[in-house]
Design a protein around this nucleic acid. Structure first.
Lengths: 350, 350
DNA sequence: CTGAAAGCGCTTACAG
DNA sequence: CTGAAAGCGCTTACAG
């Protein structure tokens, strides 16, 4: 019937007693927030070492000191993580850890407003990074009402006063369209997102429409939810309805995996018969077929920047800018080529 | 010069005031550790609702009560999450939340022993779920020295005294081999894991060797790290060295995506020319090619069971068994067929 | 059935 | 340069 607990941790009081000082002094010796006489200081550290003391983060936090913990809120919306998301997590984690903070990912099947409230109110974390932002996002609304520092990765409809980093989605789709037009394509299909509540989806669809207007192209779109299978079906549907397309743009790497399969299954060679540009590259395509031309949405840059901004916020350091729109990158691969099909176009003047 | 703080979280004192009782009573109304008059109880819950109150895990923890938080430790070993892992996270999260616990995923680029120690000593979490167990796992060693309850998903080399749930890897590979033999296959290739420090990998490789001995089959293996591209290359290599194989088993869904591509690229029809069994099904295969015969490693059952056991541990409820070996499931699809190639075998007697 | 009070392990004004 | 004391938001004996 011996109690189950074995060794409990030493407290600041025991350290103080052993060093012959008040716990106030121990606290200050540790935090450095007040000068401590060298001799005293030395005795204190000796005592801490003897006792293997390390302050309790719990008590610290309750007493009003930060916990040095940052949470990434990432709802588990689908049965799949995209590689992009792993890249986000990894790059954010790296920045967070490198600044001496602990990094937590809050990943529930669905992180709703109540879950988020609980986390925020728990006092467990000093700051929050929010992903997968919706056009109208209840979580943002909640966070605005709180005074916990937070940074969005993405944007909502109304972003006044928010701190955020987002890829410039409009520029991204524009980059893809312009490049294809440059290659002589005039019938460009967009395997586009379906759920326009997702803010990024909304922006790239609007961007596509704008680009089509600018380039005087027909708007050819086929929506696909965030899965390979949807991409497969959307691609088949698009080609059937618009056999004239000579290029497609696919809105997500996850969808691209299906799109590439579909093109192969109906015998359209890439890039000879049709050019393909994907938003990001998936590890789920083996290298031989993975040398795609991609729009890189730069998760490392976006995530790292967001983490850095949150840390600055937490440490009361000034922010250069409150809102950063990251420019996308076009990485040319072997899935795009000059349009040989349909109407002939003049090469660009040199 | 107004202070930055706006409304901070409501405390138990405010609830007590609003309900016209002492905070002692509020505390007991919540914990149920002491009877509270129904009318009082109702007022208290009303007040809690009005104030959107939820108790601070930090304060609770400091006062000696559990924080009702469980952490899943999931190192980010690769640039990809498998769908299986998402299934683990989702099912664990569901069980944990449904029991009123908060669920955290500790996901750093690499969760090393020091990170884990910090978490454990912080007192932030009541219990820990550990995944991706290694044959020799430093994290397990650390956890054994502590008195925090923990459950392994997987096994190490020496599991004495540990609480764990693991898929029976040996049975899993055996199931696949036996089924293929039943279909008349005698040359079975195994696209197998490369890193045998990963305990699950070790077990299925050993299991394959054992099965081959039992069935008197040649051991045909081609190692692939955990990526589609590795699967692609390993499959090409295997077929080149062993053109006689009529069936392959692939050790992970991530790898299978590449293997399937490879077979198509070299013109081997599935299942006419070659049968394929995959460990788990990937969402990254569009449905048309995704009707694979799979060994289901049952992440929902394994993860859910592990979460349940940890909660039982935390609540001092008895465990039926300390260690559970989950039997795998064979789900037959359209990627396996009777062997028509090579030596003819008699059909199974009816 | 309910309250007043001590205490968990820290931090931080306040006072020397 | 140093201490005594209040307080963070809870839980839990102790006392009605």
């Amino acid at each position: 019937m011996t109690p189950r607990k074995s060794k409990s941790r030493p407290t600041i009081n025991e350290v103080a007693k052993r060093a012959g000082v008040a716990k106030t002094t121990v606290s200050h010796a540790i935090s450095g927030k007040r000068p401590v006489a060298p001799a005293t200081r030395e005795r204190i550290f000796k005592a801490m070492g003897d006792l293997q003391y390390s302050p309790s983060p719990i008590a610290r936090r309750l007493a009003g000191s930060p916990s040095h913990t940052i949470a990434l809120v990432l709802p588990l919306a689908s049965p799949t993580f995209a590689d992009v998301e792993v890249r986000y997590i990894a790059s954010i984690g790296a920045v967070v850890n490198q600044h001496g903070y602990t990094f937590l990912t809050l990943t529930a099947p669905q992180v709703n407003v109540d879950d988020l409230r609980q986390i925020v109110y728990s006092g467990l974390v000093d700051g929050v990074l929010l992903m997968r932002i919706q056009q109208k996002d209840e979580r943002v609304k909640l966070l605005r009402e709180t005074d916990i520092p937070f940074v969005l990765i993405g944007r909502t409809r109304d972003n006044k006063g928010l701190t955020l980093v987002d890829l410039n989605g409009e520029a991204a789709i524009g980059l893809a369209v312009d490049y294809l037009v440059e290659l002589g394509h005039h019938s460009i299909g967009f395997i586009c997102p379906e759920d326009l509540n997702f803010a990024f989806a909304y922006r790239i669809v609007k961007g596509f429409e704008k680009s089509c207007a600018k380039q005087q192209l027909p708007r050819i779109m086929s929506p696909a939810v965030w899965s390979a299978d949807a991409g497969y079906r959307a691609t088949l549907a698009l080609i059937e309805q618009h056999p004239e397309v000579t290029a497609i743009i696919v809105w997500s790497e996850v969808v691209t995996v299906g799109a590439v399969s579909a093109l192969r299954d109906i015998g359209r060679k890439v890039p000879d018969d049709i050019s393909v540009i994907s938003f990001d590259r998936s590890e789920h395509l083996h290298l031989a077929s993975a040398d795609l031309t991609v729009i890189d949405t730069r998760p490392e840059a976006v995530g790292g920047q967001a983490a850095q901004m949150l840390i600055n916020l937490l440490e009361d350091k000034p922010l250069e800018r409150e809102q950063i729109l990251m420019p996308p990158l076009l990485i040319t691969g072997k899935s795009t080529a000059h349009c040989t099909n349909g109407q002939v176009t003049l090469p660009k003047p040199a």
